[in-house]
C-alpha cells in the first residue's frame, strides 16, 4: 500500500495558519509525524493562497526535504506552482494531479511527459463527474493510453476513480469499487489511488465508513491511498486488509506491524 499523507493541506485551518505564518516547527512536526506513521509521500498543498501558492509550496518542499528523507506529492492544478516546486524537489515527486479536463490535461501533461515522475490521474473530464463504473473506466482508459503515449511509464500512473458521497446515492460505493477492480485487472502494472473520506460526507461517525470502504477497496485491488496516516485504526486496517486480500506473502507485513505495535 502506497500511503500519501494528506495532513499538510492549507484548507485545514491549523495548517493554513501555520503556512501563512511560515511556522517551520509546526509544518515539520506534521511532516515527521506522518513519515513516522508510515507515509510514503507527504502531500503539500497551499491551494487556498491564490497569489502566494507557489512561494508557499516551494518553502514547504525545501523545509521538509532539508530536514527529513521525505518525497512529496505536489498538490496543485497550477503548472507554474508545480514547476517551481519541482525545481527544488529532490528525488521522484508525485504530481497531484492530472485529469481529462482539457485545460488541466494540456497544462499538466508537458510537466510529466517523458519524466519518471509519479502522477495521480483523476477520472474527471469536461463532461462532468463520472457516475458509473463504465464512466470511470472510459476516462481511465483514455488517460492511461494518452499518458503512456507521452512516455509516462504505466507503473508511475496512479488512477483515482473519484469517490463520491454514499449519502447522496446508494450506488456510489459499488460503482467506485468495481471501477478499481476494472482498472487493476485491465491494465496490469498500473496503480490506483484515492482520497476516500468523501464517501462518508454528510453522515455521522464518518470514521467507520471510511475504514470499511478502504478495506473493501483494498479487496478490489486498491494499492494507494491519500489518507491521514496518524489514524491508527485506518493504518492497522489497511495492513490487515492487504494480508487478507492475498497481497502479503507469509503474512510478513502483518507480523511486522504486530511486532512494531502498529496493530492498535
Amino acid at each position: 500500500m502506497i500511503v500519501v499523507g494528506e495532513l499538510l493541506n492549507a484548507s485545514r485551518k491549523a495548517v493554513g495558519t501555520a503556512i501563512e505564518a511560515l511556522d517551520a516547527d509546526y509544518i515539520l512536526q506534521v511532516a515527521r509525524d506522518q513519515l513516522e506513521a508510515g507515509a510514503d509521500y507527504i502531500d503539500v498543498n497551499a491551494g487556498t493562497f491564490m497569489n502566494k501558492e507557489g512561494e508557499y509550496v516551494e518553502w514547504m518542499v525545501r523545509l521538509i526535504q532539508d530536514n527529513t528523507d521525505a518525497v512529496c506529492s505536489l498538490d496543485s492544478p497550477d503548472p507554474e506552482v508545480l514547476n517551481r516546486a519541482l525545481k527544488v524537489h529532490k528525488g521522484t515527486a508525485m504530481i497531484n494531479s492530472i485529469s481529462l479536463e482539457k485545460e488541466r490535461y494540456d497544462q499538466i501533461l508537458p510537466i510529466i511527459a517523458g519524466t519518471d515522475l509519479k502522477v495521480i490521474a483523476l477520472c474527471m473530464s469536461d463532461e462532468g463527474m463520472p457516475v458509473t463504473r463504465e464512466d470511470r473506466l472510459k476516462i481511465a482508459d483514455r488517460l492511461i493510453n494518452d499518458l503512456c503515449r507521452n512516455n509516462v511509464k504505466l507503473e508511475n500512473i496512479f488512477v483515482d476513480p473519484l469517490v463520491q458521497p454514499i449519502a447522496t446515492d446508494q450506488s456510489y460505493g459499488m460503482e467506485f469499487l468495481n471501477a478499481i477492480e476494472g482498472i487493476m485487472t485491465g491494465y496490469p502494472g498500473v496503480h490506483t489511488m484515492c482520497g476516500l473520506s468523501n464517501v462518508s460526507h454528510g453522515l455521522p461517525n464518518r470514521k467507520i465508513l471510511n475504514v470499511s470502504f478502504a478495506i473493501m477497496a483494498v479487496a478490489k485491488g486498491l494499492d494507494g491511498l491519500i489518507v491521514n496516516p496518524l489514524d491508527r485504526q485506518m493504518m492497522a486496517s489497511l495492513v490487515a486488509a492487504e494480508t487478507l486480500a492475498g497481497r502479503d506473502e507469509y503474512c510478513e507485513k502483518y507480523l511486522d506491524a504486530f511486532r512494531s505495535g502498529n496493530l492498535l
Binding site: 458521497p165 449519502a167 447522496t168 460526507h201 454528510g202 453522515l203 455521522p204
Partner: peptide, 10 residues
Amino acid sequence: NNEIFIPEVL
C-alpha cells in the same frame, strides 16, 4: 443542527 442527515433530507 445535525439531528438528521443528507439521506434523510433526500
